[in-house]
Design a protein around this nucleic acid. Sequence first.
DNA 1: GCACGGAGGTAGACAGCGTCTACCTCGACT
DNA 2: AGTCGAGGTAGACGCTGTCTACCTCCGTGC
Lengths: 194, 194
Amino acid sequence: MDADETGLRARLVAAGVDLVLREGQSAVSLREIARTAGVSHGAPRRYFPTHVDLLSAIAREGFADLTARVERTLRDADPDPRTQLTALARTYLDFAAAHRGMFELMFRHDLLDSGRLRLRETSLPLFAVLADLVAQACRPTDAPAAVLAGVLWANLHGIAQLWAWGSLPLATGATDDDALLRAALDAHLGPARA
Amino acid sequence: MDADETGLRARLVAAGVDLVLREGQSAVSLREIARTAGVSHGAPRRYFPTHVDLLSAIAREGFADLTARVERTLRDADPDPRTQLTALARTYLDFAAAHRGMFELMFRHDLLDSGRLRLRETSLPLFAVLADLVAQACRPTDAPAAVLAGVLWANLHGIAQLWAWGSLPLATGATDDDALLRAALDAHLGPARA
DNA sequence: GCACGGAGGTAGACAGCGTCTACCTCGACT
DNA sequence: AGTCGAGGTAGACGCTGTCTACCTCCGTGC
């Protein structure tokens, strides 16, 4: 993606992605990544001045992966906006559940350099897709579509996070997040099949 | 609260709460807490076998604080369910913004022992209040009130988190979270003043 | 009155961490 | 052929959490 596919830079990022997917966020130490990539603990410094820079590059891969999954899902789904939004939401929650470590890392702003690596901006294309679909699908309101989309995103994100934490299953008694997802979409877009 | 108010146990928790409020979650190392409390780095071990145990006790204080703030807010507010929910939501978001470090810690399940200290259960009374109000305030739907309350909580939580991360301001263009809060309440409870 | 034992805190060790820096090793270019 | 820099190594430093040996009192039993 950033040229230099076979170089150490790419190998380090790949090793980090592997690690965070397999072992979770806490396992992704700089030295462990270096070991996984088969180099000394000082080698990453040549490409990533600090641990934060390397983690940010790993998180970028996560955002790219999520974005690609969403785009694939939307391409395969019925073009009806409501259906597309449901598919997007399902993909978001599934990603969070299946790649929990990566999902955590992606939103650990204390571990990432969101400024210099334009990390927040990395999630914007995904948000633009969401905002566009919301503008098409939502029932008329007085709030700007961007705000509605932001609130919907926040809802998906909150469900993913509180579900992973165990609070939401405990509080709602639900055994999977599907009821929550449907309730959220109904709330933000109006009852299903309107 | 746990008896032993003046003992080292309470002093350690208080020092940790102070630290996390002033310096953020990353500053709350076991040794730094011990230094703040004026004891050696090994002393905490007598009361908290691991760092996780101490952090969990600190997070419990955070949940207790948030719960107390919510109860105070609800007591002072108009008893109308919608108004109460608005006040609750406002308090939740304000807490997250004002005590960012504590809020982060409270939901960092990788740092906390949610099992043994019944930490998740600590947030349940707050959720019960929310669920009760939702049951009174929401427009009739087919989803159980607990699910609606869970989704609303998730929405508040997601707004708090994504707002703190900077993504939501960036994506929505909003300069404060009030528009998001109102949009969320409208979505989940029906348009205001229905 | 006094030895004793345990509760409660100290202090040093250890491995692992991120970062810094001195060094080494090649391959390319003049 | 000689030099120079890109790219990687390796050791040090101070920090972390955890473990353990020790010390120091205070309360109790006799």
